[in-house]
Write a protein that binds this DNA or RNA. Structure first.
Length: 581
RNA sequence: CGGGAUGUGGCUCAGUCCGGUAGAGCACUGCGUUCGGGACGCAGGGGUCGGAGGUUCAAAUCCUCUCAUCCCGACCA
């Protein structure tokens, strides 16, 4: 492609609306433009990057035995009513009516459609297993779209759905996808982790997220510094801090609990200041509401309740903090003065609570707290379970090593769904014995645009993007610095043609611009390799090759391209960080 | 949905407090000089000041409403 004819509107200044680096650079590099909040146009350069990711995704999906199809973006309400998600999915589902008043939605995901498709066609175990995927635009009416392509409302997603006859089959399909995903993100040149995750609203029995490590990421991940344990912070567990009795040897010596007037001490911070104790010695009591009524979650004051874990331990589909009136009606006190002693509510305590020594907690009377409270002596939780978020430094649940918390961007998520949708929607087949059984499903998503954004988050410097080779819209930028100089121009053209002939995506900067502008634009769009042809060098029989990432610059002869091809090959291999798959 | 902020030419922003009829830089057009890291000079073109209503002799500026965008939070994959 010739720069002079390529629609590439780069910006010299940072657009005010962009906060994170990938968003800023994608706007500046002329990859995307915003149409509305969370809705973006892909310009040619951005589209090329997206298509490069898609190409890798398709290759690996096909290799794993999946088949591509394309499902509709507009979906009838009936299907969603059948699965029960028309009510449950919430405001994120953009609903609309056609001219006849029939209800539809813009597809945020396609479990219903694919299940509907497959239930009409699959009758026998002989047709299984089956894995179907598509690359398609999704719409989720996010509460708060942000960060450009990282959290858009309209976005391109690869989604795949597997159908198996039984659980072992479904697990094999899941493993194959897990494998394929690792290959995909490796080939994209990304530093990522496959982490255990909560299966959330999509449901199902287990799931992994693929998280690209980046400080700007919205996800927090706990990883073990000693083994390969990695889990989303929502679900990450910790070893130790478990028991039913206070372990402090002097438990018997602890005085009986006493009630103390603590006017205005509503927060753990207030309470700690008042009693002169550390947060761990204060019990935090939170009232949660679920479809099974109210529960009192009790954790040590240095910890945060993980609602995801709480949900899982209680075995309920949702929890939320109870309203102030509900709390007062049930406990007789406002939040800030609640505690597990003589509470009418069922108490679920974190595993850190029983091993905590004498503690301070609310007295269930406004303006009063209890001191020297011991779990087991003064109250007995109905459940003791791991319900808090892990901290850096906690012990790994697998090996006891130290956990650390890193941030990342979720670029892929795989779920073992089981029979949730197939049962709800009657997608069944006949097994070997002629028995009618629900299909066992899995679903597997990759955010394509988000993957490009994540690659940029991970690969940039002050001058712009450093595209990983595999994703780079242009692998090579040829800068013709003296486009009016016949020989320099002719040689630049020759380089360009040679690279094209070898099937390498190349951008020839043939614009009538000053050199500085060409250098800046080349750096900004991040072509991994830059070839510069200038008058002086050409006069000496050389041109210049520069590695965008390392800035290593070498001079190459104009009359022999062998060293150039070597350099190109080396960069391709280095950048991908692995042998060609 | 709560909290905060911002809407002025294609972009980045000043002007708003204290009302007097719109500016700068970049970008764009023409000419000239320049030409290996976002040049310079001269001459140009381009703005319903987000929108509506109100106050006023007079509104980008004050008041009311509204829309949009961004940030934090809640939420979600």
């Amino acid at each position: 492609m010739r720069f002079s004819r390529f629609y590439l509107p780069t910006l010299k200044e940072d657009p005010a609306e962009a906060e994170v680096i990938s968003h800023r650079l994608m706007l500046r590099a002329g990859m995307i433009r915003k149409l509305a909040a969370g809705i973006y146009s892909y310009l040619p350069l951005g589209l090329k990057a997206v298509q490069n990711v898609e190409r890798i995704v398709r290759a690996e999906m096909d290799r794993a035995g999946a088949q591509e199809l394309l499902l509709p973006g507009v979906q009838p309400a009936e299907l969603w009513q059948e699965s029960g998600r028309w009510e449950r999915y919430g405001r994120e589902l953009l609903r609309l009516k056609d001219r006849h008043g029939r209800e539809f939605c813009l597809g945020p995901t396609h479990e219903e459609v694919i299940t509907d498709l497959v239930r009409h066609e699959v009758r026998s175990y002989r047709q299984l297993p089956l894995n179907l995927y598509q690359v398609q635009t999704k719409f989720r009416d996010e509460i708060r779209p942000r960060f450009g392509l990282m959290r858009g409302r309209e976005f391109v997603m690869k989604d795949a759905y597997s159908f198996d006859a039984d659980d072992p089959g479904a697990e094999a399909s899941y493993a194959a996808m897990r494998d394929a995903y690792s290959r995909i993100f490796r080939r994209c040149g990304l530093d990522f982790r496959a982490v255990e995750a909560d299966s959330g609203a999509i449901g199902g029995s287990f799931s992994h997220e693929f998280v690209v490590l980046a400080s700007s990421g919205e996800d927090a991940v706990a990883t073990c510094t000693a083994c390969d344990y990695a889990a989303n912070i929502e679900k990450a567990e910790r070893a130790g801090a478990c028991g039913t009795e206070p372990e402090s040897a002097g438990a018997a010596a602890v005085p009986a609990l006493a009630e103390v007037e603590t006017p205005g001490c509503r927060s753990i911070e207030d309470v700690c200041a008042f009693f002169g104790i550390e947060p761990v010695a204060a019990l935090k009591s939170m009232v949660y509401e679920s479809d099974r009524g109210l529960v009192l979650a009790v954790v040590t004051g240095d910890r945060q309740v993980s609602e995801t874990k709480l949900k899982a331990r209680l075995g309920v589909p949702w929890v939320q903090l109870a309203e102030a009136e509900a709390i007062r009606a049930a406990c007789g006190a406002g939040s800030g003065f609640l505690g597990p002693v003589d509470t009418p509510l069922a108490v679920i305590a974190d595993r850190g609570v029983p091993v905590q020594g004498p503690a301070v907690c609310g007295a269930n009377r406004d303006g009063r707290h209890l001191r020297d409270v011991l779990c087991g002596r003064d109250f007995s939780p109905s459940v003791v379970a791991d319900i808090v978020e892990v901290h850096a430094g906690d012990a790994c649940p697998r090996c006891g090593g130290e956990l650390r918390i890193v941030r990342g961007i979720e670029v892929g998520h795989i779920f073992k769904l089981g029979t949730k949708y197939s049962e709800a929607m009657g997608a069944t087949f006949q097994d070997r014995d002629g028995e009618e059984r629900p299909l066992v499903m899995g679903c597997y998503g990759i955010g394509i645009g988000r993957t490009v954004a994540a690659a940029i988050e991970q690969n940039h410097d002050d001058d712009g993007i450093i595209m990983p080779w595999a994703i780079a819209p242009f692998k090579v930028a040829v800068l013709c610095l003296d486009e009016k100089h016949d020989e320099v121009r002719a040689f630049s053209e020759r380089l360009y043609e040679e690279l094209r002939r070898r099937g390498i995506d190349v951008l020839l900067d043939d614009r009538a611009e000053r050199p500085g502008i060409k250098f800046k634009d080349a750096d900004l769009i991040g072509a991994p390799l830059r070839l510069t042809v200038g008058r002086k060098g050409y006069g000496r029989g050389i041109f210049e090759a520069r590695d965008r990432r390392t800035r290593e610059t070498i001079e190459l002869p104009v009359d022999d391209f062998t060293p150039l091809w070597q350099f190109v090959e080396r960069m391709r291999a280095d950048d991908q960080g692995l042998p060609p798959l």
